[in-house]
Simulated scan of single mutants.
Amino acid sequence: MTEPVRLSKRMSELGLSSRREADEWIARGWVRVDGQVVSELGSKVLPGQKITVERQAAAEQSKRVTVLINKPVGFVSGQAEDGYKPAVTLIKPENRWPEDPSDEQFHPTQLRSLVPAGRLDIDSVGLLVLTQDGRIAKQLIGETTSIEKEYLVRVQYTKPGKLPDADLKKLCFGLWMDGKPLLPAKVRWQNDDQLSFTLKEGRKRQIRRMCDMVGLKVVGLKRVRIGKVKLGDLPVGQWRYLRADEQF
């Protein structure tokens, strides 16, 4: 006999919504289990039971926006800290990329519950995703995510000579952090002082710490791609909407 699980957790596992969205919809009576409305928070279901959501839920979800921003140095990804502004404060009409191909109209309600799906250090620049859609957040930062993130990293070698090939291989696989092995990464030279890192995880200050382990000092770090979505020509400090035809 399979154990019952919370309905909101099961909806998240099925990709119907985030857990928070699921709880909102359950409370509004928008969720059915085997055809019956379930409106009590904390209700449990068996894995084989059929879960459906009312049309209103899908309509509300489709109104949720996802924004791509080229984060400048000096802005934090999430909540304001130590006097630094969060990246969401850049999401205003005057900072929208004039070449944004989306027909979406900006409205202040889009700033409500617009949260970063992944972090970029205060000293790092490049592609940051802010979303109101719990499904996208789960896709990008959920525990089971396998979406690649690509970075261009300018470095200085702090020892004589140049970085040995054996240490480049270590960056690709073999380093440990916080007592756990890092997942395999793709690391290669772009030119004499710049590496390309492609990762499937994002531990705190991971690239800077990886470089430190092999004697490299990070001088600049820029995220240029998340999954299939590229930073492209988006200027620093400007933003655009994720298009309907774009998928991570």
Rank of each mutant, 00 (worst) to 15 (best):
E54C: 02
D133I: 06
K50I: 12
P181N: 13
Q238T: 09
S12M: 11
G179Q: 04
Q194M: 09
S196V: 12
V31F: 05
K230F: 11
P108I: 08
G179D: 04
A57C: 01
R209F: 01
V229G: 10
A166C: 03
R112W: 07
D103F: 09
A166V: 13
R119E: 11
K180W: 03
E81H: 08
G48K: 07
M177T: 00
V153K: 08
D23V: 11
Q190H: 10
A58L: 15
T198V: 15
A185M: 02
R208K: 13
K200H: 10
E24W: 05
K44E: 15
L127I: 03
K230D: 14
P93L: 15
V236C: 03
T198W: 06
G126H: 10
G15L: 11
D82F: 10
G126P: 11
R6Q: 11
L171T: 00
M1F: 09
E81P: 02
Q56Y: 10
Q206S: 06
G42A: 04
Q105L: 14
E143Y: 04
S146D: 12
S77I: 01
G78F: 03
S18I: 09
N95H: 14
K71R: 07
K217I: 00
Q139I: 12
T145M: 10
G134P: 00
S102F: 08
A22G: 12
L127S: 05
Q156S: 13
I91N: 05
E150P: 08
P108Y: 03
D192I: 06
Q61F: 11
E104L: 04
V218Y: 10
L231E: 05
W176H: 13
H107C: 02
L234H: 09
C172S: 10
L168W: 06
D121F: 02
G161Y: 03
L46E: 15
L90N: 05
K159T: 00
R135K: 14
L130P: 03
Q36D: 09
V5W: 02
P47M: 14
V31L: 13
V76W: 09
P72F: 07
V37T: 13
V125H: 06
E40A: 14
A117W: 09
G161Q: 05
G227L: 07
V218R: 07
Q194G: 01
T198R: 07
R223V: 04
I207T: 03
E54G: 03
M11V: 08
S77R: 02
W25D: 04
S113T: 01
V31N: 03
A244K: 11
F197A: 01
